[in-house]
Amino acid sequence: MSLAKRIIPCLDVDNGRVVKGVQFVDIRDAGDPVEVARRYDEEGADEITFLDITASSDNRDTIVHVVEHVAEEVFIPLTVGGGIRKIEDVRTMLNAGADKVAINTAAVFNPEFVKEATDRVGSQCIVVAIDAKQVSAEGEPLRWEIFTHGGRKPTGLDAVEWARKMVDYGAGEILLTSMDRDGTKIGFDIPLTHAIAEAVSVPVIASGGVGNLEHLAEGIIDGMADAVLAASIFHFGEFTVHEAKQHMAKRGIEVRL
């Protein structure tokens, strides 16, 4: 009996619609964020993360309405990320019903923004999202750096040092994505996850690379993550969140069943 490790399904939202092919056989509208979120809640998701990938700034309000509608019907913690650049963005999302806001690129270009945001709304509401890529050559000690623009642009920032700095600036949680593993389905970057989880005093969410249920367990057991985030294995109906938790429980991990 203790704190459960969390499973967090992540939904990409474009112009207010869930994209990346959520496929549930018995769902009326797989593009409706409310319906998909409700479904994940019923399956036992511990939280839900929305990543706004809307490109046009004209349509940025749509994610606000999405959060409002989901928060009226789904009573588990909601995190929103994507395009959070100003303190007003943070406030708007929290007022719409988000419990946490994930700051990614804006933290890299303006670290003070993280300080400002945590001062204003509290550390518990601010997740710093870190996109990291291995930069050490084979045979060298492992090293990862922060990349922006979907993993295309290097920043020269060491991932472990950056994570520590963001926690010093008040981040209440770290959402760590391996850009080497994202979309590969070959499992989390375990050494990266372990290095960050060990380096910081706040919870770490592992992300990027989940292809099966054992990968989720590895992120917790070997990576020492506090939570695991996955998208496609749940969206395509390969596994339910409940099945994922049953597998984790079998591996001796404390989960909310």
């Binding site: 704190l3 706040v202 919870p203």
Partner: peptide
């Protein structure tokens, strides 16, 4: 070996 994180964040049992 496994320090506990702060904040205490997530789902825990209430007796």
């Amino acid at each position: 070996a496994e320090p506990l994180k702060i904040p205490h964040m997530g789902w825990n049992n209430v007796n």
